[in-house]
Design a protein around this nucleic acid. Sequence first.
DNA 1: AAGTGGTCTAGACCACCGA
DNA 2: CGGTGGTCTAGACCACTTC
Lengths: 242, 242
Amino acid sequence: MTPSPKLTFAPLYEQVKKAILDRIIAGEWGPGSFLPSEIALAKEYGVSQGTLRKALNALTREKRLVRYQGKGTAVAVLDEDSDLFPFFLFSDKHGKRVYPLSQIYGLRLGQPSEAERAALNLAPGVKVIHIDRVRMLDDCPVINERVTLSTARFPDFSFESDKVPNTLYEHYQLHFGVTVARATEQIEVTLPDPADIKRLNVERSHPLLLVTRTSFDLQEQPVEFRISHINTSHHVYRAELR
Amino acid sequence: MTPSPKLTFAPLYEQVKKAILDRIIAGEWGPGSFLPSEIALAKEYGVSQGTLRKALNALTREKRLVRYQGKGTAVAVLDEDSDLFPFFLFSDKHGKRVYPLSQIYGLRLGQPSEAERAALNLAPGVKVIHIDRVRMLDDCPVINERVTLSTARFPDFSFESDKVPNTLYEHYQLHFGVTVARATEQIEVTLPDPADIKRLNVERSHPLLLVTRTSFDLQEQPVEFRISHINTSHHVYRAELR
DNA sequence: AAGTGGTCTAGACCACCGA
DNA sequence: CGGTGGTCTAGACCACTTC
């Protein structure tokens, strides 16, 4: 009954919640596996069952845990189908959901643009990571985008493009403990630039969707800035609004 | 101490929550005014303070109430700036938020299209209300849209266009007790149809945003279907994703 | 100082799951 | 059947607002 990590002061259930979240991120309980029972965890943290419940229920509301009456509490599995990142979806014209594959064609350190500096709230002189990639839907290049990350937020980010997976949000969470909780997007119509014409294989006069997105973590700090150029001739962009 | 509305069975705090929500919708406590204290309400419903707290906290998470420590619990004020309907925002090109004004040019009963029937989950033969309107931003016509509502969901909907306000979601909530909690959108690029050319004053070749939206209430039932054609030359469409 | 919401506890009983 | 989470209670103490 080693009374695990020391707790400082702040609402008790908040501390417990954070402690449990840390252990989830550290991978102590893998996605889908079950946590100890409420009673065991309450004893371990030296709090009442009610307080521990409040922590678990908060994590459940945030989609980190799933509770099964009579069975136990499990770590939520986050895959592409899950509800954890319910935005950034694409469908074909019949409404059937499709999943993009990515091909990175640029991955390097750079100076942030003014928009990037503002969106990510960067100190002067901080460099950023630029990920340039094309995303394919049904083997067809549909999205040309640049993802921008702060080096401060993502130290030791790998610059080998094989090490950067398709699903960036999952990557942020699993390797940097950064959880995207919210995003804002600006959506406009635009004409393709030369890179779009080449990468997306479209005519100069073919209008594209221009989506500018800033993502935030649970503490409301900006995480990622992204500019996407999207061809909606054969697919539609879907947004889930809550 | 009239022990108000009878309660049937289901989780107690759910019943209390619903009962309180009904009184908010009925206007018993106007937006911004304070509810009785926890203790008073608990006594009134004949439940413990803890159970009542759970109901109030759930309503607070849903943005219906605001709690002030030491002061009391008030009904949340829902205006255009509030967070209750955090979607469907527009900005000018400098990021400054702007609010649309509407001009209704069509308001009548009609047969639903196949898409409308499917989205609103309509029984065969049910008629729908069609609201056709142009929305202005900075005195410039920017959006041409058709809003579709089920007559079953909105009985006695007024067909005098002066009686239908700008802010439809607030209208649904205040006059029909229907709260929009979630929406899904499909976003594409399209070219204007003849009505768009006339209403939005654009060229035939000028591409527009095509947004198809279905809105759902707290019980996950579809409420509204909407097709919007948007000119993003001078304004951008913003989405808040959670 | 009185009244409000915020936190926390301890214990009771229920509903569900699995062996 | 025992163990799990789900609900509900009663009461304690704290932090904040208002007077």
